[in-house]
Nucleic acid binder design. Structure first.
Length: 591
RNA sequence: GGUUCGGUAGCUCAGCUGGAUAGAGCAUCAGCCUUCUAAGCUGAGGGUCAUUGGUUCGAAUCCAAUCCGAAUCACCA
């Protein structure tokens, strides 16, 4: 239990002893004491005034005295300033924390809680390469999964690959028409980019055909429907659904190229999945649920045979679930897949990491599940994140302003190399170690940059700012870790002795922050928000650097101080490493 | 038009379950490398927390209205 929780519980007990009244956590707040005042944690007294009909000063005096009397080993003194009761925690408490936890790799991790969660993220289309938006999604999903693990959940990472449909046929048609047998290997192109290029070629050809038809006097809307290449593509989709061998073969071949490309990108950015679903396997799911809904009269048929649900009472609209020809739509298969996940993995919660443009869809999905009375309906959670924009505005594929994931990774690695070479601190490392180092820095910078903001909010990706390795960045935190490692390599650990000397303010600041790490993990898990950790880890690194500028470890005033500071360094290093790890960011030993 | 989300320093963002003089980073300016990695540290300037009203001992935070911006409201996925 964190010290602020202990303080709150103790205060509740003291208030009961003093005034005979029951209070709860909601009745008063505990804050960290502002640096300009003496003390570590503050109890805000105002909210108690009304209930106790006493002045804040009187309450503070009573409460402070009682706390110190009841727990002299924890609370050594108090100061009463305006309506704030500032409590000073004993050095013994902080020293004990350090002694017990300084070298515990698992510090901050919560015990297993028997709950199972699935986190679905990434969800690529197999007709184009991954871009910046996918990166935010991947980093978020992976990090949230790790954070949940640290909170004691059993977590399954899943991915649904959008590998079928009209858009996939588009690149297939274009390849048939224009590739003349070219392959990723023959053109030395990464498979997903190769296929993506044909998707672009399709759109160019389609546009040209539409323009041609319009020129001949056809209205635009009609031209869009009747362009030969589009009709051709639609025929191919029907052939695909009928399982026509040559279409299936082409489809498998081209998707294979894409997967090869995706695999190498995923490997580079450190994304992985416990289970991959393919839409080609799941797109027929959910039809049994439609029948169930019809028999329960939750769904209804229209005269043309299509099946709908009326959600107007929920403030939503009517939603189609089965077309008149009996084929299912996006929503139908999502309902089916939700059920499959629940049944296969016995999960208690299903988290979907999907952009906020699908808020409506996910709300409808959950609402349908609830209406059907499905047992897992309430456990469907949409982790909705905002779009990534550029300083010039939104990314638009039509205008070629989409930031490609692979390009970005290569640029970041190149920048990391430049920086590192310019500083010249690791000239003695061999080529393999250097390659690893550049990747660790580059990927760390990208992940930190995309995870440091609240996922719910849309964010601006500034290419210039993103390659800055100073300040509120991943490399800054990594660098702090590297400094710690460097010190620990050079300073032998003195023989352990009990710590008793009084803590200096900067030493205590560090301990106060280290003590908050478990609470941060819990908060990040509750909010499904890695930015909590990004902020925390940055502050901790900042505090450590400040501490290091002021106090020497090698030439500490005494052997005891040296041991204390080495332990502080070890623990700070561990916490930085764990915190970064929860964001998918690795730490180098040198940089 | 309906629904949802957002508006905090020049820029990017914290803070939002109400609490002390609103914080970081970048950018700008001024300092700090014969001692543990300067990808660092210290300091300065920079704010009508969109606007107005309300609730409260106390509001960036809660409520209402207004203004501005975004997403969405497909027999696409």
């Amino acid at each position: 239990m964190s010290i602020s929780c202990i303080l709150q519980k103790s205060a509740i007990t003291s208030l009961h002893q003093l005034y005979g009244l029951e209070f709860s956590e909601k009745d008063f707040q505990i804050n960290q004491t502002k640096p300009e005042f003496e003390g570590d944690y503050s109890i805000v007294l105002f909210s108690l005034v009304k209930q106790l009909k006493l002045s804040p000063e009187a309450i503070g005096q009573d409460l402070g005295t009682s706390l110190v009397k009841n727990h002299p080993e924890l609370f050594v003194s108090f100061q009463l300033i305006k309506g704030f009761l500032n409590i000073t925690i004993s050095d013994a408490y902080w020293l004990e924390l350090l002694t017990k936890q300084y070298n515990d790799i698992c510090y901050g991790k919560q015990p297993m809680n028997d709950k199972k969660v699935m986190v679905e993220y990434s969800s690529p289309n197999t007709n184009k390469p991954l871009h910046l938006g996918h990166l935010r999604n991947n980093f978020l999903g992976w990090s949230v999964a790790e954070i949940l693990k640290a909170n004691g959940y059993e977590v399954f990472k899943s991915c649904i690959v959008n590998d079928r449909g009209i858009h996939i046929c588009k690149s297939m048609i274009a390849w048939q028409r224009y590739a003349d047998g070219a392959t990723p290997a023959s053109t030395h192109t990464k498979g997903d980019h190769f296929v993506g290029d044909y998707y672009v070629k399709f759109n160019d050809a389609y546009k040209a055909e539409v323009a041609g038809l319009v020129e001949k006097g056809m209205p635009e809307a009609e031209a869009e429907k009747n362009a030969p290449i589009m009709l051709h593509t639609q025929r191919m989709l029907l052939d695909w659904e009928a399982g026509k061998p040559e279409v299936m073969e082409l489809w498998k071949k081209m998707n294979g190229w894409v997967y090869e490309g995706f695999d190498s990108t995923y490997k580079k950015i450190g994304s992985d999945f416990d289970k991959t679903y393919y839409e080609s396997d799941t797109y027929l799911l959910g039809k049994d649920i439609v029948n169930e809904g019809l028999s329960k009269k939750i769904f209804y048929s229209k005269p043309d045979g299509s099946v709908w649900i009326d959600l107007t009472a929920e403030g939503l609209d009517e939603k189609l679930l089965l077309r008149k020809d009996g084929t299912s739509v996006y929503m139908t298969q999502d309902i089916g897949l939700a059920k499959q996940k629940y049944e296969q993995y016995k999960i208690d919660q299903s988290i979907y990491v999907i952009g906020d443009e699908q808020n409506h869809h996910m709300k409808v999905l959950k609402s349908i599940a609830q209406k059907l009375g499905l047992p897992y309906a309430d456990d469907i959670y949409h982790l909705s994140y905002g779009m990534v924009e550029l300083p010039t505005g939104k990314m638009k594929s039509r205008e070629g302003t989409v930031v490609d994931a692979d390009d970005l990774v290569s640029e970041m690695i190149a920048t990391a190399r430049e920086h590192t070479e310019a500083l010249g601190k690791v000239k003695d490392l061999d080529e393999a170690a250097l390659t690893l180092l550049y990747e660790t820095i580059a990927i760390g910078a990208m992940k930190f940059y995309l995870l440091r903001v609240d996922p719910k909010k849309k964010m601006v990706f500034n290419p210039v700012e993103s390659i800055d390795f100073h300040g509120f960045t991943g490399p800054f935190v990594q660098y702090t870790y590297v400094r710690i490692k460097s010190i620990l390599r050079k300073q032998p650990m003195p023989e352990t002795q009990p710590l008793e000397a009084a803590l200096l303010p900067l030493e205590k600041d560090l301990l106060v922050q280290l003590e908050q790490f478990p609470a941060m993990i819990i908060q990040a898990g509750k909010e499904l928000n890695p930015s909590v950790l990004a902020n925390y880890v940055f502050h901790l690194a900042k505090t450590f650097n400040g501490f290091l500028a002021e106090h020497s470890i090698a030439n500490a005033e005494s052997l005891e101080k040296k041991q204390l500071r080495l332990w502080l360094a070890v623990m700070t290093g561990n916490v930085l490493q764990s915190g970064l790890q929860l964001m998918g960011i690795g730490v180098p030993e040198r940089m």
